[in-house]
Design a protein around this nucleic acid. Structure first.
Lengths: 252, 252
DNA sequence: TGCCTTATTGTCCAAGTGACATAAAGGGGC
DNA sequence: GCCCCTTTATGTCACTTGGACAATAAGGCA
């Protein structure tokens, strides 16, 4: 962050700053992402990530993300998990000019559908696989952002307790398993999974009501433990893909 | 990334975009970071990360990082590992105005000292712990960026082959172990370490010359394997700290 | 009451890992 | 050449973990 050496009166170029939100949830045992239909050009009518430009020159970037989370998705940032994915700054990524976008990953428990007539009326929960496969096209470079965000979530499920962010305050081991299965897109053995979860210190803690409705034997309820790091980590099959740096290829 | 709903003639605020580089290497069995002494205000005379503003409005962000890598550190980006850490955009992080910085992590093998008289004359390799502990003050919010970058490197050593980026083309198992020990700041058992490395498929491959100078028994030489993901991962002690999202706290 | 469904506990064995002993391969002093 | 020192390589053993899978517990419902 030293200054340019040469010209005395050189001044850095100015760019526009945007935030984009990769909001994930699990519905019908499937990982889903919240997308909105664009109403105006460019890419009018196409699906895109919720997001927008910095509100004013003094707005914090993360605050812009929480604001858009409320405005475009009707979600309360204090409720859900929110972390940064990275910056995307390819010169031609936005036809309106030089736009650098800071992408955020948000994790939400299963929620009611976006209410028609509300701010988030044109928002839809779409299956993640449809976007990743390219079957469902999205605007800008959003497919790349989504891929990075999902990979970040998948990786964090391995060695952090992020999976509990997909659950409500109280949840069963089976519900937690469904999170792993949906995000990783694979099946796990319930017995081994339960053993692993319970033996991992700080992952879950028993919750008040020891039972719950259902069709089989009632399941015990848990809440997130005090730990944030899983040791030893949960392991997904050896099919892991190395995650590049967000927004670009990795050199070297 | 939809547009602002309200005013017709609203236009987003303009910001300056910078890149900052966290360049790590291992010297004298210690993790070190390349810092430069600032010549001009703000923070003149203080140490800071190499970096600078976007060169012009059309320059790709990653390209700006590689350019600064060459200009300020005299390093060739095609040689070393370079990946993004994240964006840092607190409103008051730079007294010159609204500056959003995209931070990059670069990993270099042990290199000769910066040549006095060259572009990188005022660059120095400082111990990482001195910066992390606050003992060595740095400009702007660079300590936070450095902490995030180092934590990213530490985490990636666990489940990727990033450690080989600290080594030259050919290296011994012991040299690789020194990388882990320096980055993680702990000691490992050489016998268990060698067993683990060799059994992990794709981590290292035998290199041509089967021997090498030294004072004891000559060590076999290796090169990086074709794999990028370590399975099962290397494990550091359970003292792991959860890494927040770059540049801000994690909510929820 | 008996069947179906889901949750929970338990067994068995192969693989992984920490702790530690021992052998191999050079250099240097004498 | 020979002994010692240093560093690398291989091996052993007990313990833990994890995958595959059997068996039991606890409800709903006909």
């Amino acid at each position: 962050m030293t200054d340019e050496p040469s010209d005395e009166d050189w001044s850095p170029p100015l760019v526009m700053l945007a935030v984009d939100l990769v909001i994930l949830t699990v519905r019908e045992r499937t990982l889903r992402i919240l997308l909105v239909e664009r109403g105006v050009p460019p890419f009018a009518g196409m699906l895109a990530l919720p997001g927008g430009f910095l509100g004013d020159e003094a707005e914090d970037v993360r605050l812009a993300a929480t604001r858009e989370l409320a405005e475009e998705a009707g979600l309360d940032a204090t409720t859900l998990h929110l972390e940064q994915i990275g910056a995307y700054g390819a010169p031609a990524r936005d036809p309106r000019g030089r736009v650098i976008s800071v992408a955020y990953l948000a994790i939400a428990p299963r929620l009611p559908d976006p209410v028609p007539g509300s701010d988030a009326a044109d928002a839809r929960w779409e299956p993640a696989t449809a976007v990743l496969s390219g079957q469902l096209p999205v605007a800008f470079d959003h497919r790349e952002i989504i891929a990075d965000g999902i990979e970040q979530a998948r990786a964090k499920l391995e060695h952090t307790t992020l999976a509990t962010a997909f659950c409500h305050e109280n949840f069963t081991i089976t519900e937690l398993q469904h999170v792993y299965e949906a995000v990783w897109d694979l099946r796990l053995d319930p017995r081994n999974f339960a053993r692993k979860v319970r033996r991992t210190e700080g992952f879950v803690a028993p919750a008040g009501t020891p039972r719950r409705t259902g069709s089989g034997r009632p399941a015990q309820l848990f809440q997130r433990g005090e730990g944030r790091v899983l040791y030893p980590p949960m392991t997904r099959a050896t099919t892991a893909t190395v995650t590049g740096t967000p927004g670009e290829e990795t050199a070297g």
